[in-house]
Design a protein around this nucleic acid. Structure first.
Length: 590
DNA sequence: GCCGTTTTCGGCCCGACTGTTTTCAGTCG
């Protein structure tokens, strides 16, 4: 685990412990915010402590106390304040907070008066009936705790973006079909395009929410209704995923969509801007602050803005900010919305596989698929010889495959076909084919597939060696991570990005939702560091071309522009760059 | 704990829903 992730974990644990101990809630929130900042930070904090400690101190949300803790961890591997605050609680008590519905107050009560010290004692105390005499512990509450504890024991990780999106879209389509529903969208982290999703947030506009709530709670995918109110319901699906639905009148649509899209930190800043302008913002709208404590929407006060997100941003002195940027990462000072790359900008696919290695489409099918999507080119990049598990090509098979690709290309007009390879970057940084073989190719994606647990130093040297090879165009899925699977390489990305920028090698956003590699924060660092980005689906089948949307969301979260993405460049510009690498040959038919 | 174009002290977002309550505490997002 990186230092950033380790420290973020400790900060979250401090927050959990402080909360159970009943400490100031703003102190708790400050620790959680610091943890979020560390998780999203592209720089390695250990590196930063050494090379640029001032940058650490300048990060908004990290104060003197947090910086001191970070420096302490980097120097000693521990945080004294963490040890001290956790020593005040039984070792397993903060795990009890993970049970849905159990917050700090209840956990404190269970500990003080119920003999609960961890998840095991919670289970045994529930079974023994010892908790029944506690205040506010009725039969219903105890039953919910037992059910939620059982759920926690089987619950998996956060859902991947690519798993949550199709489910959300199914619901949205069905909700839109209900009479009286004028609008329906998914919101939350899904709309912001985060790589993993805690739960799916759905929003509908309707003047008649009752039938919508009834439809939702009785949906065939629903395993358990968690909450069901007049305007808000939550359910757990058969696959364990939680889905929340909120219904609002059409006139409140924009305010609600803004509110439920988040992020939390983005919304806090919006509300602060509202207060600075003598207004208040909630999920019903932006209202003039008249000093009355009762919420304005309950008094029939007409909002200043509420129907669309755009008009709310405008009244707050801002232009609309794309959901992918709403993470409080500088979007208020530098709103890149108008410049972000979008799916329509993508003109070519530069990493995909045929049946020659581990794909499911023939060369012809792959080319036709790319053509049908309106692409001007496709690079066919089957695996190299070391990827035996993926039926990687020997040099002989590669040459035969190349001839087959050129033959197919000659038959299919209207699209450029690049003969390429996804070449393994071996553990020591050597590529899986010798340079004279690479020189026969139009296009080279170099990717790590094995030895993904090597040290950061070895990983850095490995990627730098691949970048230094003059035949390489793109480093494919640079870290090799699998979401909810394996962490992958942890190279010094500052050095990798600088080298890629200098050499003119692109770094990939692999769109496969299990990968999304590079991840958003590293794409941001790469783009800002002057490295080119290549967004590729790594398609092994026709439908994998649809993964592009996930790569685009990741790119937009990073503030990537079309100009920074080689897949979006005009063909001539792309060719000039491609041919500048190694001795790649120009296409016969170009 | 963090922050500052009125502030180095005094604020820091707020509403829906549930369960246990006779008026509200706790959780969640």
């Amino acid at each position: 685990m990186s230092a950033n992730a380790s420290i973020a974990t400790l900060f979250n644990q401090i927050a959990d412990a402080l909360e159970v101990l009943g400490e100031n809630q703003f102190k708790v929130m400050a620790h959680r915010k610091a943890a979020r900042i560390l998780e999203d930070l592209s720089d390695d904090v250990a590196e930063l402590c050494k090379s640029d400690p001032d940058k650490l101190k300048s990060i908004d949300g990290l104060g003197a106390s947090s910086v001191q803790k970070i420096q302490e961890f980097v120097a000693t591997g521990k945080i004294k304040a963490h040890d001290e605050v956790l020593a005040k609680l039984p070792p397993g008590l903060i795990d009890v907070l993970r049970v849905p519905g159990l917050g700090p107050k209840t956990v404190k009560l269970l500990w003080d008066q119920g003999g609960v010290t961890d998840l095991t004692t919670l289970k045994s105390q529930l079974a023994s009936g010892a908790l029944e005499k506690l205040p506010r512990m009725g039969a219903k509450t105890l039953q919910n705790i037992a059910e939620n504890l059982a759920f926690l024991e089987t619950a998996g990780d956060r859902a991947r973006l690519g798993d949550a999106m199709p489910i959300a879209e199914t619901f949205v389509t069905q909700l839109r079909a209900i009479k009286g529903v004028t609008q329906a969208e998914f919101a939350g982290s899904l709309r912001r395009g985060r790589e993993t999703i805690g739960d799916i947030d759905l929003l509908v506009a309707t003047e008649h929410p009752a039938p919508v709530m009834q439809y939702f709670c009785s949906h065939p995918l629903v395993a358990k209704v968690l909450v069901s109110g007049d305007t808000k319901s939550s359910v757990r699906l058969n696959n364990g995923m939680q889905v929340d639905l909120r219904a609002v009148p059409a006139m409140n649509w924009g305010a609600a969509l803004l509110y439920f899209t988040g992020s939390k930190d983005h919304n806090v800043i919006l509300r602060e801007r509202a207060i600075e302008r003598s207004m208040r913002l909630n999920e019903y709208g932006l209202f003039a602050d008249d000093g009355d404590e009762t919420p304005p929407q309950q008094r029939g006060v007409k909002p200043v803005a509420s129907k669309t997100e755009q008009e709310i941003y405008i009244k707050l002195g801002l232009e609309w900010i794309a959901p992918e940027l709403r993470e409080s990462h500088g979007e208020f000072d530098n709103n890149l919305t108008k410049h972000l790359v979008c799916a329509g900008d993508i003109r070519r696919e530069l990493h995909c596989h045929t049946t020659a290695s581990d794909g499911f489409l023939s060369i012809e099918q792959l080319i036709e698929t790319a053509k049908s999507r309106g692409f001007d080119a496709i690079a066919i990049t089957d695996h190299s010889r070391s990827s035996a598990q993926a039926n990687g090509l020997s040099v002989e098979r590669l040459r035969e495959h190349a001839a087959n690709i050129r033959a197919a290309s000659a038959k299919i007009k209207g699209i450029h076909v690049l003969v390429g390879s996804e070449v393994d970057i071996l553990a020591d940084g050597h590529l899986d084919y010798p340079d004279d073989v690479l020189a026969e190719l139009d296009w080279v994606v170099a990717s790590p597939h094995t030895a993904l647990k090597q040290t950061p130093e070895a990983a850095t040297a490995r990627l730098l060696a691949a970048i230094a090879n003059p035949f390489v165009h793109v480093i494919g899925h640079p870290t090799g991570r699998i979401l909810n699977g394996r962490p992958g390489l942890e190279p010094n990305m500052k050095l990798v990005i600088a080298a890629a920028a200098k050499a003119g090698v692109a770094l990939e956003i692999n769109c496969n939702p299990a990968r999304l590699d590079l991840r958003d924060a590293l794409v941001r660092a790469a783009h800002e560091g002057g490295a080119m980005i290549s967004i590729n689906t790594d398609a092994h089948d026709g439908e994998h071309f649809d993964f592009l949307r996930y790569g685009i969301l990741t790119a937009r979260r990073a503030g990537l522009t079309a100009a920074g993405c080689v897949n979006a460049w005009p063909w001539k510009q792309f060719e000039t760059w491609r041919l500048s690498r190694g001795r790649a040959k120009s296409l016969k038919n170009s």
